[in-house]
Nucleic acid binder design. Structure first.
Lengths: 119, 119
DNA sequence: CCTTGACCTGGAGCGCGCTCCAGGGATTTC
DNA sequence: GAAATCCCTGGAGCGCGCTCCAGGTCAAGG
């Protein structure tokens, strides 16, 4: 299986090398395999997991939650629980989209009002 | 005109008293009027402005931008420029809503995939 | 050989946006 | 007139999520 250097993993995942190391320290990534010289070698699986991590971070999941989720992932038997967590997160994402939209509407009303004042 | 104590202003605006003071220090609020004993007395106007501030914060405008906007507001003649800034912000809000939605979609695909694995 | 460059580690530092605290009034309540 | 309550100021501290740094190792190229 192909592996990826830290620089490549950063390139592909969209996280910085420092962030990748930070995530590993935090337990968000399981310990990454090493070459004989001690350099990390990311696998396709690692990158796949990082893709999910990116998705979750971009939708506002805190590091601490991600860590819990990652710990849960260590036990295969928790798949149902993990899916439930993702669905729960999906609901929160929906809420924040809704909140953002309603604030946006309010903002647009204010803009319209200011426009009127200037006209 | 009715005025509001710090506690009342906090209640109505939804910001904490500390945050209100912080915003004033930062120049996001113009200096709030004081009673004879030195306590702040917020006006309706102050609360109206705070409502816009809340809207902008909730939609992700950074403190620094809010400060610039507030400084601009000191000069009546800048109304058009301010409206332009709000519209610019509105576009960014739209972008973040779109981004959130697309990440949500990706997330849902992943959930569906995990569900499949467990079925 | 020696340099270059990618990577390693542990730990410090940073930017943001508050939030809290010490020490000190003033005014209403009993 | 004592106590409680609300407020004041300046400044320190905090939680989050990275980001950077010093000092060192290893592998390949000139």
């Amino acid at each position: 299986m192909a592996t990826y250097s830290p620089a490549q993993a950063a390139e592909v995942s969209g996280f910085s090398i420092d962030t990748l190391r930070y995530y590993e320290r935090e337990g968000i990534l399981r310990p990454i395999a090493r070459t004989s010289s001690g350099h990390r070698a990311y696998t396709e699986d690692d990158l796949g997991w990082l893709d999910l991590v990116h998705c979750l971070r971009d939708t506002g999941m805190p590091i601490a939650d991600l860590k819990l989720y990652a710990e849960l992932s260590l036990d295969e038997a928790t798949l149902a629980a993990r899916v439930a967590l993702l669905e729960e997160h999906d609901r929160r994402v929906q809420e924040s989209i809704d909140a953002l939209r309603s604030q946006q509407e309010k903002l647009r009303e204010k803009i319209a009002w200011y426009r009127e004042q200037g006209a």
